[in-house]
Amino acid sequence: MKYKFQQWIPKLVLAPSFLLILLFVYGFIFYTGYLSMTDSKLLPSYGWVGLENYNKLWALSHWMTALKNLAIFGILYIVISSVIGLVVAILLDQKIRAEGLLRPIYLYPMALSFIVTGTAWKWFLDPGIGIENTMHNLGWLSFEFNWIKDSDFAIYTVVIAAVWQSSGFVMAMFLAGLRGVDNEIIKAAQIDGASSVTIYRRIIIPLMRPVFLSAFVVLAHLAIKAYDLVIALTGGGPGRATELPSTFMYSYTFTRNSMGIGAASAIIMLAMIFSIIIPYLYSELKSGGKQ
């Protein structure tokens, strides 16, 4: 009897959250998918239109801009954050003094919300009050840094702010990975006369493959979700130059009364996230099975 009860406890404890997730996550995913094939405008409505919303979506130059921006932002954000994170982690790993002080300093930006980051960088980057103005006041009058006001460069300011925010977090992940590398291997390599550059390049970094994968997945889904940073930093502007799929989705669903198209764009975003997460889960589960 008691044994049977114990067998049931985990299921009982998990049941409420399982049901909630089933309804509020998966239920609404299906609901959104359904809405994307209806003629919903202001409120959800259930007239079936098939793939019409998707056709409309892909014909919109605005949506193409959003995807192009996501590609620029996503690639630069992931690559630069990873490189900076890795370099800082390796430098911190040199058994330096005051590491305990430096680590939280690098990690701290992650504690801020993207809204705060966006607003602060908006001021830094603004030519009228930010870095450019400061340089002018210091006497460097030819200094120019007005990317945030320039349609062609504004998306790169989003990258700058996002990299500033996330590099420290990536650094922490890499640092944990570096510490996890077996000392015996490193010692063996040292005895064989390998230089520390070679050790990092040929031994430690290859051993950190899973950490790279985790960092990639975390950064990639942050990039696809990015919304608040753009809203705070540029508001999607100048013009529509920094629109991302997430801001597109919000504006079509809630301010342009085109809920069907908004839902279709949400489903495309979901598909993008799945295309990243599923291979990751697959490889994780496979390697987990081996152990």
Binding site: K41, G237, G239, R240, Y252, R256, N257, S258
Partner: peptide
Amino acid sequence: PAAVKGAVYDVVTA
């Protein structure tokens, strides 16, 4: 309607 308004906004602001 909001959808047309949004479309005009896009072009004018661009």
